[in-house]
Design a protein around this nucleic acid. Structure first.
Lengths: 189, 189
DNA sequence: TATTTATTTTGATAAATATAAAAATACTTT
DNA sequence: AAAGTATTTTTATATTTATCAAAATAAATA
């Protein structure tokens, strides 16, 4: 389901009158005038709402005698909200791209000729810088403190601060003076 | 969940920006500025949206360092839409009452001194009248055509039309000249 | 075909709302 | 306590939208 479709579906549900219409239709199929009676609204208003609901694919209609009967599309209502929110596909790539562009801006403004000009004061910017420098380490490999310092010194004179902050940020792990790159966690900024 | 709460929840989901916020939060907890970066909106707008989402009980927040982290309330998103639509309790009684009032108006206008003045031309009104008259029959009991006619003649001279229409409407059932009251169906007008 | 009945469309209007800029708060770190 | 940051509130605006009345369609019956 596209993002636009999801928004359209939720808009149907985000209105008192339409919610009542849907609840009535969940009990039994009905026609416009009867719904108008039940909800205390005019038929034109009900028709207006039903059109929106139909556009979102939440009801079907069929004719019998004088009336146009409306009937709930039960499939749609059987879905969990989370599934709709998450499986709404587009845009996700765009968001990631925008965040990546921001990272690149930060990196460009703090690096010059492959070296760090200064350690950013803002934690989130420093995090970006440290992650960028961490790409110089091989995943899985064990480093001594000396090796770490050597690599970091290529980027910045105060390599001790870099190393300490990398450990504090959970980018590097230290166990009895051996260092290694940690997996990228997913639930910390 | 009350109807108002349901509407408020669905309103959260019925907006492109909020949907994107929620999708981002479904992946990992985030703070205002980061969301603003991702979505290409200002922090004040994000804050505005997050407040609405929080009012609907769809996110929680906690503080770490400089940031106020926002985190999805997963319980809510695990519910099926139908459950929310149907279990939204109030108003249902009001609607039924309003429909009953309409029935009473129709009955009052077509009956005089316990007898039918005319058979309504409109099918839905005739249905109401026929159902009202059908209350004279005992559920489960078997009637001959003669007994049926006798009872209906109390209400209207043209008892044949009444009897025929009752069968057509599915109110009376006929099997080899024996009649009986049918159960009230639920999915026909 | 004419008439009755149901539904939809069209205007018009009042209320709600998404957004940004600027100002005000609130919280951390030094 | 002061300075730096993040977040929220306020103000203003342009857009959307729920509703009804009246007019226009559409469909069924006589």
């Amino acid at each position: 389901m596209t993002e636009l479709e999801a928004v359209r579906l939720f808009k149907c549900l985000a209105d008192k009158s339409r919610l009542q219409i849907l609840k009535s239709l969940a009990a039994e199929d009905m026609y416009v005038e009867r719904l108008a009676e039940r909800l205390g609204l005019t038929p034109s208003t009900i028709s207006f709402h039903l059109k929106k609901i139909a556009d979102a694919g939440a009801v079907r209609s069929y004719r019998t005698q004088y009336y146009t009967m409306y009937s709930l599309c039960r499939e749609i209502f059987d879905t969990r909200i989370l599934d709709i929110v998450c499986e709404t596909s587009d845009e996700a790539a765009l968001q990631d791209r925008r965040e990546e562009e921001y990272r690149q801006r930060v990196i460009r403004s703090f690096f010059a000729y492959g070296r760090l000009k200064a350690i950013p004061a803002q934690e989130k910017k420093e995090r970006i810088i440290l992650e960028e420098i961490a790409r110089a380490f091989e995943p899985g490999r064990i480093y001594t403190e000396g090796e770490i310092n050597l690599i970091l010194a290529d980027y910045y004179d105060d390599f001790c601060t870099l190393r300490r902050d990398m450990v504090a940020e959970g980018i590097l792990g230290r166990e009895q003076n051996q260092y290694r790159l940690l997996e990228r966690e997913n639930n910390t900024p």
